[in-house]
């Protein structure tokens, strides 16, 4: 028996390793789209985070008036905003990672985030 030939164990190890690679890709990159956090960004203010854990309403004061944000477990929406064209309200419920609503008169964006890939860049 030479040392150089293929053995059945080679196939088993190759299959296991391939399975591990596929599983790693699936675990790391299949996006977890469920939103868990609302990020409120307003001009001149530090970004504010509100967990989407229980139903409540928050009011954000901006240059044009008050934006009322309604929060429920797993989702949030712009319930009322001073914009005359109701763009913020018409964005509807934000419930998947990355969805965003904008109120330009109040200079603010509402974005929900999940656990999906959240990195900006990778440095070596």
């Amino acid at each position: 028996m030479t040392l150089s030939g293929l053995r059945w164990g080679d196939g088993v190890i190759a299959a296991l390793a391939s399975g591990a690679v596929v599983a790693a890709f699936a675990l790391a990159y299949l996006p977890d789209t469920e939103a868990s956090m609302l990020v409120i960004t307003q001009t001149g203010e530090p970004p504010r985070q509100e967990p989407l854990d229980r139903a409540r309403e928050i009011e954000i004061h901006g240059p044009a008036g008050i934006t009322r944000v309604q929060i429920e477990p797993g989702r949030a929406r712009c319930a009322d905003s001073p914009g005359t064209r109701n763009i913020c309200e018409n964005s509807g419920w934000l419930q998947r990672h990355g969805e965003v609503a904008v109120s330009l008169p109040n200079r603010l964006t509402l974005q929900v985030q999940g656990r999906g890939p959240g990195y900006d860049s990778i440095h070596y």
Binding site: M1, L3, S4, G5, L6, R7, W8, G9, D10, G11, V12, I13, A14, A17
Partner: peptide
Amino acid sequence: LLRPLAPRHVGALGLAIA
């Protein structure tokens, strides 16, 4: 860990991948 299986059941390829 794989040493007891080599070379009868696992060859160089399997060892290298592992």
